[in-house]
Amino acid sequence: MEILVCVKQVPDTAENDIELAKGGRDIEREDLVYSVNEWDNYAVEAAIQLRDQVGGRVTVVTIGGEEADEVLRRQLAMGADGGLHVNDEALEGSDGLGLARVLEAVAQQGSYDLILTGAQADDGAGQVGGMLAALMDLPFAALVNHIEPSGAGALRIGREVAGGDQEISEMDLPCVLSIQTGINQPRYVGIRGIRKVASVEIPQLDAAALGLDAASLGAGAARLRRLDYFVPQSGPGARMLAGKPDQLAAQLVEILKAKGGIR
């Protein structure tokens, strides 16, 4: 099975506050570290496991600047067979559809049975996979949390749906799936793994190489644009209690009593 996995390099924001920069035009990136989008990491692991089961190749593709090379190497170290790096300044400011068009062009240069994306990335939009499927006229499923081969040319998949239920379907190949976290336990990649693939050749692609018209890409063509970042003014928010632990507890007990919280 030929599998293409689309990955994105994102800032690691889990443990630290995000500050704004350039008057809100960007976030403060000086102190940020970057790594692969968590959902994408699950997608690559899913692809590798599937390949190990039925054979084939896993190719990872990313769109980003030079520094995005790191995430491709990381996924190669995990066990992906090849990487593709789309690096073109003209793509900056693309909206979801713009990125989906680039990925469509990448996918058309190969012959993939399955295309995976993460369910969402740092912007929380969760849109590129579905758009890519529509552009390529392939079936799509979002929030996939289970994949197994189902005879020739089909997969049995599970989707996460409301209330934690799982919706099971059968899906024809080729198709596009967006992968939810928890589908597997991605393997660890250390410095050693990344060094081992340091010399692997990763083809660099730009809009021209993909046969894309630069004018139809990037910020200019985007129908959804980000104007600025901001930290929302706190609403009324909670009434914050103050005092020593004992005093806090006493106040809470009074509130709990009043609200029927002690039975």
Partner: peptide, 10 residues
Amino acid sequence: EFAGLVSAHV
């Protein structure tokens, strides 16, 4: 964006 840590006008 960023898991709700920052908002954006679009």
